[in-house]
Simulated assay, not measured.
Amino acid sequence: MYLDFQIITPMKIKFLFLTFILFSQLSFGQLTAKTNAVISLIGNQINSDLQKDNLHGSISVAILKNDRVIWAGAFGHSQMEKDVPADTNNIYRIGSITKVFTATLLMQMVEEGKIKLDDPVENYLPEIKNLKDYDKYSKITFRQLASHTAGLKREPELRGADVGPLDQWEQKVLACISKTSYNSKPGEQFLYSNIGFAMLGLAISRAAGVPYMQMVQQRILDPLHMTDTYFALTDDKLSRLAQGMSNGNGGVNIDLPARELKGRGYRVPNGGIYSTPRDLAKFAMSLTGKLALLSAKSWKQMQEVPPGGEKYGLGLMLYKSADLDVIGHNGSVPGYTSEMGIDQPSGYAVILMRNYNIGSTNLTSIAHLALKALKQAD
Rank of each mutant, 00 (worst) to 15 (best):
1 M>W: 03
2 Y>G: 00
14 K>M: 09
14 K>Y: 07
18 L>E: 15
19 T>W: 01
21 I>M: 13
21 I>Y: 06
22 L>C: 06
27 S>M: 05
27 S>T: 14
28 F>S: 10
36 N>L: 14
36 N>Q: 14
43 G>Q: 11
44 N>Y: 01
44 N>R: 13
47 N>R: 13
50 L>C: 09
51 Q>M: 08
53 D>W: 03
56 H>C: 06
62 A>F: 03
65 K>N: 14
67 D>K: 12
69 V>G: 02
73 G>D: 04
77 H>D: 07
78 S>T: 07
80 M>S: 11
81 E>H: 14
84 V>S: 09
89 N>E: 12
90 N>G: 03
91 I>K: 10
91 I>Y: 10
95 G>L: 03
96 S>C: 10
96 S>N: 07
100 V>R: 09
100 V>W: 00
101 F>S: 05
104 T>R: 11
106 L>Y: 01
109 M>K: 14
109 M>P: 00
110 V>Q: 11
115 I>L: 13
116 K>N: 15
117 L>N: 08
118 D>I: 05
121 V>E: 03
127 E>V: 02
127 E>C: 00
127 E>R: 06
129 K>S: 12
130 N>Y: 04
132 K>A: 08
133 D>N: 15
136 K>A: 07
143 R>T: 03
144 Q>L: 01
146 A>D: 08
148 H>R: 04
152 L>G: 06
154 R>S: 13
155 E>V: 06
155 E>W: 10
156 P>E: 08
165 P>A: 15
169 W>N: 02
169 W>L: 04
170 E>P: 00
171 Q>A: 14
173 V>F: 05
174 L>P: 00
175 A>L: 13
175 A>M: 11
177 I>P: 01
184 S>P: 02
185 K>H: 09
187 G>P: 02
189 Q>H: 02
201 G>S: 05
204 I>F: 06
204 I>R: 08
206 R>V: 02
212 Y>C: 04
216 V>L: 07
217 Q>D: 14
217 Q>S: 14
220 I>R: 08
220 I>A: 06
226 M>D: 10
228 D>G: 08
231 F>L: 10
236 D>Y: 13
239 S>H: 09
240 R>H: 15
244 G>F: 06
245 M>H: 07
246 S>H: 14
252 V>I: 15
256 L>T: 15
257 P>L: 07
259 R>L: 14
260 E>D: 05
271 G>H: 04
277 P>N: 11
277 P>F: 05
277 P>C: 07
282 K>Q: 14
283 F>A: 09
286 S>T: 12
292 A>I: 04
292 A>W: 01
293 L>K: 07
294 L>N: 12
295 S>Y: 04
298 S>V: 03
303 Q>T: 06
307 P>R: 12
307 P>L: 12
318 L>N: 12
319 Y>H: 15
320 K>P: 00
321 S>G: 10
322 A>L: 12
324 L>Y: 08
329 H>M: 09
330 N>I: 07
331 G>S: 11
335 G>P: 06
341 G>L: 12
342 I>E: 09
343 D>I: 01
345 P>A: 07
347 G>D: 08
348 Y>A: 04
350 V>L: 10
358 I>K: 11
362 N>K: 04
365 S>Q: 13
369 L>Q: 15
370 A>H: 00
373 A>Y: 00
375 K>F: 01
